[in-house]
Design a binder for these strands. Structure first.
Lengths: 341, 341
DNA sequence: GCTAAGGGCTCACGTTACGTGAGGGTCAAG
DNA sequence: CTTGACCCTCACGTAACGTGAGCCCTTAGC
């Protein structure tokens, strides 16, 4: 059973214009059109709309919703679960605000004038009730697709800080464990979307105040980064030979900040169904090989061993937003451009 | 104790930019500035901000909030009371949505696929939870300052329709009672703001579909209007002489649709602190006298009797948004223009 | 078959409520 | 005196649609 745009709008309490807009920005495209060109929405579309609305009600901008929905999808059951948690949390905020208002009412009824702090406290609670995430939370972390990640994130930051304070080095095993957990959390928190990762970095560079409040100080970030490199090199060491490991140690972390942007671009092209033989995609794939060769060298045998490590050790890719589809895309682009790989 | 804009923003969870914006549009002006030009907000400002936020959370646009707050103010206790009612209503919506989501979750957990209607129902409940008023409610009636008015309004429309169906005429006492209640409700619903009344009329003229759904058919509106005229003439009859009543009967209702616009303009000028001797205000005042004389004639004795009736019978002014301050303003403008009154 | 009403299409300008950045002044602590 | 945080005004830009125009499509009733 397919719905026209007006029917869907009516049924959901949205407007036709909003649905047009979602189509125009690629957020929710109807799965088919009638012979007359009418948009026709089916069950899968409605399910996707449910995801969209759930994220919208968290306060996420549409562009971010699109980004979040471009990665691997969580089961709908999880989406629904999180909505229930959201409602429960908002019920708690509502109870607090209500209590506050009842108190205010009592004061006013008794002919007392509430003081400034009373009004300000009330206003604050009103704002908290209105928005699921504070502007700060929305900005501190683009980790909105899973609100459960926030407390986990804080706990991890605390754990990393504690490790630093007791003098741990990035090579310590527990530091490495923390780093792996960090990457896993980043992956989960960003829906495996590198655009969010880039934004996190930009935010950290530009806003010292927010940086301090989130706990993501440059020192902590560097520490985690080094620990992550160290952890991954330890994994590679199980696959590579000593002279190969020497090169890895020298080069592995050198251009790691260039990867997220490239990955984001490639994922965009893949999502836009740009053919792998498109010159732009080919250029990106070549750039990919440059970055790869910067730490892997040119020996095909080394490449094969590294690939084996990547295939067998999920932790090497955790948080990097590189999946098999993307790898296939890069391979196809390279094959069509005649580049060696 | 005065707050700077940043302090207020932080305390309330708003942004400095929003407060700048509210200042710029005249919605919330700081009661003072420091010598350096810093905005300084005091208790009265914060109380006003509370009113603004309460209305904002009903979904009212800022322009409408400004209009609503330009009239006589309801006690803060009533504002708070209505907020409590809002929270309670939203709690009911939350419970419905939660129940729906729990059911959906159970289906998904059991490996069943919810059907299209399930998803659509859920999406509808999500929208209802998100917004206090539906777009239709917001548009049907600009009676947002008191959500309790909506059900009362519906009941009144029903009562008027019933009276019409049993053949009542506008001169029947019960029809007149309904009309007086109508005007009272319009006054309360619009915060005694004629701009809303004008919008109600425009909406009724332009949107037949909405008209039908709201029950405000042209026939019903005419009936109420005639009943209101009849009710008011009955009140005037207690103060005027027979020949004066003859004139009133002939002319009283003739230009009654011109009054709301004039009143709105005068109230705007008064709110903007335009001096009463300003030529524009004087022109408005003269227009006021024209309209007045159209039903009252030129006899000062008649005028005095009509004024006495207005002073003693609140029902003659109910819903008209004319208060003592406005009358004083008009009088002052007339005095400064040397016009007879 | 025709007509009318309701619904659809695309296009494009406009609105609302700020967000963001620029350039410069103010305030308080070290 | 310097520095960092905060304030000012100005002004362009943004996100998420709202609104209207001109035209096509669908369906029910005559």
């Amino acid at each position: 059973m397919l719905l026209t745009v007006g029917e869907l709008a009516r049924r959901c309490g949205l407007t036709v214009r909003a649905l047009h807009h979602y189509d125009a920005i690629g957020l929710l495209r109807p799965s088919s059109r009638s012979a007359a060109g009418y948009r026709l929405y089916g069950q899968a579309d409605v399910e996707r709309l449910h995801r969209i609305q759930a994220l919208r009600q968290l306060g996420l901008p549409l562009a971010d919703i699109g980004a979040a929905l471009s990665g691997p999808q969580r089961p709908l059951a999880e989406v629904v679960e999180r909505q229930i948690a959201q409602i429960d949390r908002q019920a708690a905020e509502a109870a607090r605000l209500r209590e506050r208002l009842v108190r205010l009412r009592a004061q006013l009824a008794a002919g007392q004038s509430p003081d400034l702090a009373d009004w300000l406290d009330t206003l604050e609670l009103m704002t908290m009730y209105e928005k699921y995430f504070t502007p700060e939370e929305l900005k501190t972390l683009p980790l909105h697709t899973d609100p459960d990640v926030l407390p986990e994130w804080s706990a991890l930051v605390t754990a990393v800080r504690a490790a630093m304070e007791r003098g741990a080095t990035p090579d310590d095993p527990d530091a490495q464990l923390l780093a792996l957990r960090w990457m896993d959390l980043v992956g989960r928190g960003t829906g495996d979307n590198p655009a969010f990762l880039m934004r996190l970095r930009a935010m950290n560079e530009n806003e010292p105040g927010l940086r301090e409040r989130s706990g993501l100080t440059p020192g902590l970030e560097r520490f985690v980064e080094q620990a992550m490199i160290s952890a991954r090199l330890a994994i590679f060491a199980r696959y590579l030979q000593p002279h190969e490991m020497e090169r890895m140690r020298a080069h592995y972390g050198k251009q790691m900040h260039a990867w997220p942007e490239l990955i984001a671009e490639l994922r965009g092209a893949l999502a836009d169904r740009v053919p792998a033989n498109d010159p732009r995609v080919q250029a990106m794939a070549r750039r990919w090989m440059e970055l790869f060769r910067a730490y892997a060298g040119d020996d095909p045998a080394t490449h094969a061993r590294i690939r084996e490590a990547y295939a067998k050790e999920p932790e090497l890719r955790s948080g990097s937003a590189v999946d098999d589809a993307l790898l296939g895309y890069v391979r196809e682009a390279l094959a069509s451009s005649g580049a060696r790989h």
